[in-house]
């Protein structure tokens, strides 16, 4: 996988850091810029994990940025802000589902973190392949192709080694390639 196309990442990363620093120093407009920059990302993540539920996505959006406002003094940003917002949004989806479903009788663990779901337009031809992958691979694919994160950022968002992200992505793509060649 070629990451050269992500040359712009460093600039944005610095900028996220600079904005976060400015926000900590009392610059409210810096928060606005961070919000506008990462709003779409948080919505995508919430939609992906929340079953394309618009209302849930909006709830998660506001709570994710409320978290950011509250926790900004403690945050250490090593990559783009999205790598920090990703696990927060995912946990918030889970919390909303717990609240909504209360104590379901099924076998699912209400405390378990949700798995990503492909978007409605994903297509039946690829859906089986996606659902046959492990949850970590599914997350990696979402971060890579829906959110366009680099491997380093994916690793940071998922708190896994870069090598793991790379190999899981490679394996998933190989499986898909083989599937398409046989069809």
């Amino acid at each position: 996988m070629n990451d050269a196309r992500r040359d712009g990442t460093d600039e944005e990363e610095r900028s996220d850091r600079a904005l976060l620093d400015a926000f900590r120093r009392g610059d409210g407009d810096a928060f606005r810029q961070l919000y506008e920059r990462h709003r779409a990302f948080v919505l995508r993540v919430a939609m992906r994990f929340g079953g394309a539920d618009n209302e849930l996505a909006l709830d998660v959006l506001q709570e994710t940025f409320a978290w950011l406002a509250r926790r900004a003094p403690d945050l250490e940003l090593r990559h783009r802000l999205s790598t920090l917002l990703y696990p927060v949004a995912r946990h918030l989806v889970r919390d909303h589902r717990v609240r909504r479903e209360r104590y379901p009788d099924g076998d699912g663990d209400p405390d378990a973190l949700p798995s990503p779901e492909p978007p409605p337009g994903f297509g039946d031809d690829l859906r089986d392949w996606f659902q046959g992958l492990g949850p970590l691979q599914q997350e990696i694919l979402g971060l890579r192709f829906a959110d366009e994160l680099s491997l380093e950022e994916i690793a940071a968002a998922l708190d896994i080694p870069v090598g793991t992200a790379k190999s899981r992505l490679h394996n998933a793509l190989r499986q898909l390639r083989e599937k398409l060649e046989h069809e």
């Binding site: 492909p118 978007p119 337009g121 829906a146």
Partner: peptide, 15 residues
């Protein structure tokens, strides 16, 4: 092409 395909398929309308 595979990556292009996936990028297109993962596109999701957000509210």
């Amino acid at each position: 092409d595979l990556e292009k395909l996936l990028r297109a398929r993962f596109r999701q309308d957000a509210p």
